[in-house]
């Protein structure tokens, strides 16, 4: 028998084997006591002396190859785990377990963002949703009859006390700074309310995360450093950032912060309005007037503050295009997060 012929046929032969029994048959056929390899070995003495050495090596190589093939096949038969005749489980059937519930995407984003800031040394503080005009406006350097208030349309409560539903989380700045002395590093998540007509991008209730840091010698460059670290943690290391001058009554200088569009990587697409940039938060150095309102000396302490819309971040991260989905509580929506 020609060894080369045998070598050529074993590959095809073993490929077609699908059971352990078949494999055993194959083993006996080649490596058994009376198998082909044994026969070949037995034929060595019949050969001319000068051929014996080379032939012996070839038989050895065949033997090694067969052992190797059989070992591999054994492994693959064990791995495949398809329905076995021996009464083992069919693992194609569904697994048995309790279905796990899902946390709301807004909760998940809040947790993630708060965790990032907590790792940097910020504490999480929450405040009431019903506020007074002082904490929501006046204390934050927003005069009551001034156009700067127009962006903060506000729900008021009936009754003589002029109570309102906070239109941003910034009143918690006032509450914390009135009670505690610097150094302060705080993040504030929570619900906020504005009487906006509801559509795909507006909701009369949404969530914000506010943050502020107050200490001696806090600089604008620190604001940039902290927010860049934050944006990289949330959106990835490659994200680019830019700070644009803006106006907020409670900060000076004020900046809006854009990140390079996470969809098109800055090339311009429908999500970023072809600009390549997405606005994600507002920030700035806390205005000296705010410090004066809470009795902190602006000559001694400086600080920065920032605020962002949680739904907006969630929409960007998860590719959600309608803010109303967050509050419909459709299980088909919730179960995707």
């Amino acid at each position: 028998m020609d060894i080369n012929e045998i070598l050529a046929q074993v590959d095809a032969e073993i490929r077609d084997i699908g059971t352990r029994e078949g494999l055993e048959e194959f083993r006996v056929k080649y490596l058994g006591r009376k198998g082909i390899v044994a026969q070949l070995t037995g034929s060595i003495p019949t050969l001319p002396v000068e051929e014996r050495g080379r032939f012996g090596q070839q038989v050895n190589a065949l033997k090694n190859k067969l052992s190797c093939l059989i070992r591999e096949k054994e492994k693959s038969l064990a791995d495949s785990g398809t329905k076995a005749a021996s009464g083992e489980e069919d693992l194609g059937m569904p697994g048995i377990a309790q279905e796990l519930g899902h946390l709301h995407p807004v909760t998940q984003i809040i947790t993630r963002i708060c965790d990032i800031f907590m790792r940097m040394g910020f504490a999480v503080v929450e405040g009431p949703e019903i506020e007074n005009e002082y904490n929501n406006f006046t204390g934050l350097n927003i005069p009551l009859e001034h156009p700067s208030r127009d962006v903060f349309d506000t729900f008021y409560l009936k009754g003589g006390e002029k109570l309102l539903l906070r239109s941003h989380t910034s009143p918690v700045q006032i509450r914390v700074m009135q009670k505690q002395k610097p150094p302060l590093a705080v993040v504030v998540p929570g619900r906020v309310y504005r009487p906006d007509a509801v559509d795909a991008s507006h909701s009369f209730m949404f969530h914000q995360i506010e943050g502020f840091l107050v200490d001696k010698g806090i600089r604008f460059s620190d604001l940039k450093g902290i927010l860049e670290a934050f944006a990289r943690a949330v959106f990835g290391e490659e994200i680019k950032m830019r700070f644009r001058p803006h106006f907020f009554p409670f900060t000076e200088p004020s900046a809006e912060v854009d990140i390079s569009c996470i969809i098109c990587k800055g090339k311009g697409c429908s999500v970023c309005g072809r600009k390549g940039w997405l606005e994600i938060l507002g920030s700035g150095m806390i205005h000296p007037n705010v410090f004066k309102h809470v009795g902190i000396d602006p000559e001694v302490y400086t600080g920065f503050a920032f605020g962002m819309g949680v739904e907006r971040i969630a929409m960007l991260k998860y590719g959600i295009n309608d803010i109303r989905l967050f509050f419909e509580n459709d299980l088909r929506f919730l179960k995707q997060f």
Partner: peptide, 23 residues
Amino acid sequence: VEEVARIYGFENIPTSDPALAAQ
């Protein structure tokens, strides 16, 4: 300060890491 920073360019102001006490 804001006027100067605006025209100087926010992008030209460096970034730094403030020292934060553990909470």
